[in-house]
Design a binder for these strands. Structure first.
Lengths: 230, 230
DNA sequence: ACAATAGTGTCTATGAGACATTATTGC
DNA sequence: GCAATAATGTCTCATAGACACTATTGT
């Protein structure tokens, strides 16, 4: 094999959850230059014998402690602009992780500080490297995948009510949905959700049925967002 | 910065076009081990000061001669399984390129042999490395993006008829579409296509109006594929 | 006139969205 | 009973799909 240029390869994580009625992203504060003190995506080097999804899962576990149940983790894209890291040529493979609102760490293991930050205010955080672009891509991906996949269930606990699922849509899309139409739509889409046989108890009002994620990955028909031209 | 493992980074191209009433992919025959003699995706090393999309565009130009008009080129995904290349650790960033049916080379510059191969028969080609998986992902991406984006126009020449556009859909999806409903749908979707003011001439039957791609990237409403459950 | 292809119109079923109504709980 | 929340039903409009029809060319 001919000579080839050496690259560093990292994984970076866009970890999203819904909490406090906002879409939040997990960011860590950098403790070393460059961009010391700035917020950045959690991530790190891929090991020489490690698969990319394994590296992403490892970093996620290190930052959040989450291993089970397997969170949603998908490749988002790869960012390799030559000067994105001032020190050397680094190509980073970004992964998108979606988590339910767990009471997971306000601080990760190998980061000075970790925090859930509102995605709507992340622009003001002046993130390190090209992480702002990666965050934008991740949030866009999540928003659009809610339309045609059952991804919203990844933001919910193992058992959830239709109202909880609707809240996920409303917060991620930043738009209110009609509760009655939403209910009809979700329960009418094959394998989107599956009734557990149980219901909530104790609260005010009629108990809500508890569902789990159904087998469907892709929704037919999709949950269409209202468009400007409608 | 701490020690980091060195990786080789390459770009690989899934170049698709529609010709001879089939969806075709550009493959090159490997002239050296490993996988000598096998079909593989065109691609090569990313240069140390080269951006990833630039590397993809360069490889595409080297293999096809295509530079203008700018073909559709999007990042498909990154493949980095530790032993995908038996020689060393190679992470490859795959790009998806869609081209109109140009009379472009049956042989590229730096490949022993290049050929348009039917995607439906590519499984029998026993591709090198993990390229079969990359091809599958690229074809899936193209199929699904035809639904909700104006990507089909990337398979067409700068000016095309509605029938040509429909043929692209039919071939990529492997399914016949009603010509009349398709026409109504396409012309009724804002900014999908734009009439040039001209029409075809010389052939049998009523002349067809010539269109160019409109400004729309995303289609509202989408061109829905028929589903099994419909 | 006729074949061939392009383009429009009509009908029906389905689904989205607006919104009324009923159901089931706690207090 | 009343408040609160869940779940279902009704109506209207838009659109997909099936398919009849009209338009415009070459021969």
């Amino acid at each position: 094999m001919e000579e080839y240029p050496p690259f560093a390869v990292t994984v970076d994580l866009v970890v999203l959850t819904v909490r406090e009625e906002e879409l939040k992203i997990l960011l860590v504060r950098r403790g070393v230059p460059p961009y010391e003190g700035r917020w950045a995506l959690p991530g790190g080097f891929v090991r020489i014998d490690e698969d990319l999804p394994a590296a992403a899962a490892r970093e996620l576990a290190e930052e959040t402690g989450i291993r089970e149940p397997a969170p949603h983790l998908e490749q988002l894209g790869t960012y390799g602009e030559p000067r994105r890291d001032p020190r050397q040529r680094v190509v980073t493979v970004a992964y998108l992780a979606l988590l339910p609102n767990l009471s997971i760490p306000e601080a990760g293991s190998d980061a000075a500080e970790a925090q859930w930050r509102s995605v709507t205010r992340v622009a003001a955080d002046r993130l390190a490297f090209d992480h702002h672009k990666i965050v934008t891509d991740g949030v866009d991906r999540a928003r659009s995948k809610l339309e045609y996949t059952s991804l919203a269930t990844a933001f919910c606990p193992p058992e959830f009510t239709i109202a909880q699922l609707r809240e996920v849509y409303e917060i991620v899309w930043g738009r209110e949905l009609d509760a009655r139409n939403f209910h009809r739509k979700v329960t009418g889409t094959v394998d989107f959700v599956e009734w557990t046989g149980r219901s909530t108890e104790g609260g005010p009002g009629r108990p809500a049925r508890l569902f789990r994620a159904g087998g469907a990955a892709v929704l037919h028909p999709p949950m269409l967002r209202q468009r400007a031209d409608n």
